[in-house]
Write a protein that binds this DNA or RNA. Structure first.
Lengths: 339, 339
DNA sequence: TTTAGCACTCAAAAGAGGCGAGTGCTAACA
DNA sequence: TGTTAGCACTCGCCTCTTTTGAGTGCTAAA
């Protein structure tokens, strides 16, 4: 693989990314002034095709990059594209605006990412399960209903409605809250065990029958809804890609993207640090075989807690997407830790 | 407009709705056994076309209903389709499952509607503004942060993060909560006035400087986010309609549907009771000129508080959509009032 | 008033050429 | 030995034409 071959391959990939048309030898020789004739380029192309890096849609067409071609490009050829200053400013500004709530900050990142890259984005939001409870409190709402407010260590607040037996007054709620706080504070939603509940239950020996059902509900409520959420952004951007001019393809892909459990799997963090690129069939799902997914993880307190992803056709602007994604995940991590 | 003409028109519309193909005289004479020959049907069709109820895409094609044709069908011809028992059961069952929270109940309705009709649905959720405050409470979260929990009369619960000055202890929060409750309880979010805040501010004369900023934030927080939300459901169903096989049309429509403020306007309740049908250009937006929108309002406590809508191509199954929508809005209203 | 018959229309499908972008191969050249 | 000009060849795509067939409107007879 000599230098000229690399330059030819790079030219083919760049041109195809930009135009979505198969690239011919003439175009390359002229536009990417390599200083050689089309015939020479053709010879190089024949070699590249033999190596499996490019292919011909049909005999008399130009070449397009193969999946391995893209892979080689991403691994060896691609030049890092610096993130433009305005882009940096925009990201910082937008994130600063959402510095109140974790969830809002993360959602905003997804939105920004789809705006800046013009691709579809996927966001895996952190699961609440790993966070520890800081505070739990009950408020009576109406007859037989109370709201449980949970405050986690990372500042996330959630409330859940639960049924409460009649006959509890405000004072009762207050004391139950306090008791629960004593036992539960500092435990994570994940590791929190039912045995704790039993201790609490024992301590609340007065009104035991009255509270049984209530405590059971609290227990339940704490277990529910811990799973990670997936946010989809800029889904309509798919429609701009010429490879998705076919309605059926769009539909298949969209349906796949809306399957939250699958997307959760697709976005689950890899061991490698930084930005991961999965091209075509490197994605484990058949439905993504014409797409590339670029992901990066973000962190809170040093630990990986979620993933941002950019999804486009295999013919996507890798360098731009990667640089924006890289910058954004770092900005997000920073934001989260400042919060 | 004699009986036979009506039957011909009905046949054309039903057939076109089912097949999306222009309908010829032969088809009608055969399939909808009118007991006359195609030639006779042709004569009737010529009359119907003169009346503007049907039209020909081109000379040698069959007829398709015009916008006025659909209008006549919906107003005069359409037979009411009873909602199937399984459908009723499904709706009741699904709604019963969400009988805890208003918001969940309403969102579920939209989801059900898109599943049952196979069209796209729009839901206008009630604004919080009209509900009165039942309870308001502050909980300290961390240094300089508190969460405000608001309970409205309809059972809706919301929490908002606000900044709190340092130096307030749990006891302070408790007493502020109590004071606010005394003044605010029973006022609606809409009618609630700043003057009330000032009274409160005066009463809290101790720590006045400390609390100023805090109270201002509460005030702000109560004003924010009162507007009605629009939920979109089954957006992908659009892709099944042959009239949307063109990507650009899909994109234009989807972009329109995602404009929340426009959709809010489109869904704003009309004076008429029950189900409203807007066909083609009867919708005020250019982008909806090939669509029909069927809406119905739902109520809480006798008052209209929101809208459900079914959006399809003008060639849509009006009778089915209308009956399902009608049943569902009633079930939703019932559910909300039981809640 | 209804209907059979028939000429007519026109979109869509099928076929036929021509174009041109692009290739691979060969032979000459540096 | 690598590079290039030349040339025959391939094949998708565009355009033009033809064919097909579903459907019509009109007329005249029942």
């Amino acid at each position: 693989m000599d230098e000229r071959k690399r330059r030819v391959l790079q030219a083919i990939i760049l041109d195809y990314i930009a135009t979505a048309d198969p690239v011919g030898s003439r175009t390359i020789a002229k536009k990417y002034n390599l200083g050689v004739s089309p015939a020479t380029v053709r010879n190089e192309m024949a070699d590249l095709e033999e190596m499996g890096l490019i292919e011909q849609p049909h005999t008399s067409a130009g070449r397009i990059p193969s999946q391995s071609g893209y892979r080689y490009y991403v691994d060896c050829l691609m030049e890092k594209e610096p993130v433009r200053n305005e882009t940096r400013e925009m990201i910082r500004g937008a994130l600063l605006n959402r510095m109140r709530e974790t969830e809002a900050l993360i959602q905003m990142s997804g939105k920004l990412l789809s705006q800046l890259t013009s691709y579809t984005t996927l966001v895996l939001a952190p699961s609440m399960g790993q966070n520890t409870l800081r505070h739990i409190q009950f408020l009576p709402v109406e007859r037989e209903k109370a709201v449980m407010v949970i405050v986690l260590d990372n500042g996330h607040v959630e409330h859940r409605l639960i049924e409460a037996p009649e006959g509890l007054n405000e004072e009762d709620f207050h004391s139950i809250s306090q008791l629960l706080n004593q036992h539960i504070r500092g435990l994570s939603l994940e590791n929190w065990r039912a045995s704790v509940m039993q201790t609490i239950y024992r301590d609340l020996d007065y009104h035991r029958d009255l509270l049984g059902k209530f405590i059971a509900q609290v227990e339940n409520s704490l277990l529910v809804g811990q799973d990670q959420k997936v946010y989809l952004g800029g889904a309509l951007n798919i429609l701009n890609q010429p490879e998705f001019k076919d309605i059926d393809k769009v539909k298949t892909l969209m349906e796949l993207l809306e399957e939250e459990s699958l997307m959760k799997e697709v976005l689950s963090p890899t061991d490698e640090d930084g930005v991961t690129v999965r091209i075509g069939t490197e994605n484990m799902y058949e439905g993504l075989k014409d797409c590339s997914l670029i992901t990066a993880t973000y962190r809170f307190d040093g630990k990986i807690i979620g993933t941002l992803g950019v999804l486009g056709p295999t013919r996507m602007e890798y360098s731009k997407a990667i640089s924006v994604l890289d910058f954004l995940t770092k900005a997000l991590s920073e934001g989260l830790n400042k919060l």
